[in-house]
Nucleic acid binder design. Structure first.
Lengths: 206, 206
DNA sequence: TTAGTATCCTTGCATCGTTCAGATATACCG
DNA sequence: CGGTATATCTGAACGATGCAAGGATACTAA
């Protein structure tokens, strides 16, 4: 292979990718959806983006965790966006909370591996990525906001937020990780279950 | 090194370990407590038990997942035992549920890596280990039993069980994985939070 | 045009789970 | 007691992984 031939090849597969960072994230999302979180290796990602496994280092991501953090962050953005959309126009606090909860669990079931990455232990310490924690807090504050601006504020808003958040998250992870099967619910669908559960809080929500 | 010398050495570090299976499980529990779930490799486990990394295969565990499943199973046994102990002598259903919940979250915080292994995604498919699923169901059925034998049976027991289980598990995982910090609770301790949350269900428990 | 920098490649290392062939101790059978 | 069979463990090696170091290449600005 002559040098000119080599140059020709690299005119197609450009030596400088252009914007490898975004390409990596979108490719990671695809791999995630296809092969799960276990299939998301730097080598697989390199093959998907037409690049060498070490191309991500130093310039774009100093670490695999930084890559995973970036992917997780887009996940949190999408989750917050979807939740906000699904909850717009809710007549009262209770239905708003219901919609937020249903949206949460729907996102998890429709984007299972991404959800697992977002809330799993793949990225070892969140402390390294303060931006991630902030983005992750967005969907949390959606619930919090819905509770704090109800008429009376009967129960402490912070407390109720954590309770509802925990309930949704617990059910979601148990279902996603297949520790809990829908036939154990005593209700037909997962969404119906969530609604019924929110109903248990009853008077505490008004 | 002569053959006899070699034989002498192996009288101390016996060629046949004796009961490698149990030794492996207990050593795995120690490694888990010391280095977390990420530090539990077959090579580290081999060094801890004084054996070659390949010694576990064929005879004791055909797979690393089988080893992890065995460790997780002892974890579930301990969890169910502790929950049963902590809940004995509860005067009514509500306090019994409270104690079960508190015991659950206490186990998780005191055995963090073990809990992460039990409910994480390290062992890829639970379907391979039906025994594990059964043992895991013990602590679940503790809650279920407490709810089904209350006076009236007002709300559907299955439904309430899943709700309470989800709430406890969600809060626990969020705390253990440091997605939720105790200062967000609006309550001093995690246990106080759990009790207060159970109280939200109020009349549904009698 | 040329120097400098950002980006990417090549090579290689340590670790991981796992396989395979062979060594060794225990158990069983005569 | 002796010999063989079986269960158990070792040793070397394979492929895959994340990652470090240094060289190659393209873009950028003087």
């Amino acid at each position: 292979m002559t040098a000119t031939h080599k140059a020709d090849l690299q005119k197609k597969f450009r030596y400088h990718h252009g914007n490898l960072r975004e390409a990596a994230i979108t490719a990671a999302l695809e791999i995630l959806k296809r092969d799960g979180v276990a299939g998301l290796s730097l080598r697989a990602l390199a093959k998907a983006t037409g690049v060498t496994p070490t191309a991500f280092y130093e310039s774009h991501f100093g670490d695999k965790d930084e890559l995973l953090a970036a992917v997780a962050e887009t996940g949190f953005q999408r989750l917050a966006l979807q939740m906000a959309e699904d909850a717009t126009g809710a007549p009262d606090t209770q239905t708003r909370i219901e919609r937020l909860a249903v949206s949460y669990i729907r996102f998890a079931t429709e984007n299972k591996p991404l959800f697992q990455l977002m809330f799993g232990r793949e990225l070892s310490d969140m402390k390294r990525f303060p931006t991630l924690a902030m983005t992750a807090g967005k969907s949390y504050s959606l619930i919090s906001a819905a509770l704090s601006k109800r008429e009376q504020g009967g129960e402490d808003a912070r407390f109720l937020t954590v309770a509802i958040w925990s309930l949704c998250h617990g059910l979601t992870t148990l279902v996603v990780d297949e520790k809990l099967k829908p036939e154990q619910f005593g209700v037909d669908t997962t969404e119906a279950f969530v609604k019924k559960t929110i109903g248990l809080f009853g008077s505490h929500l008004v």
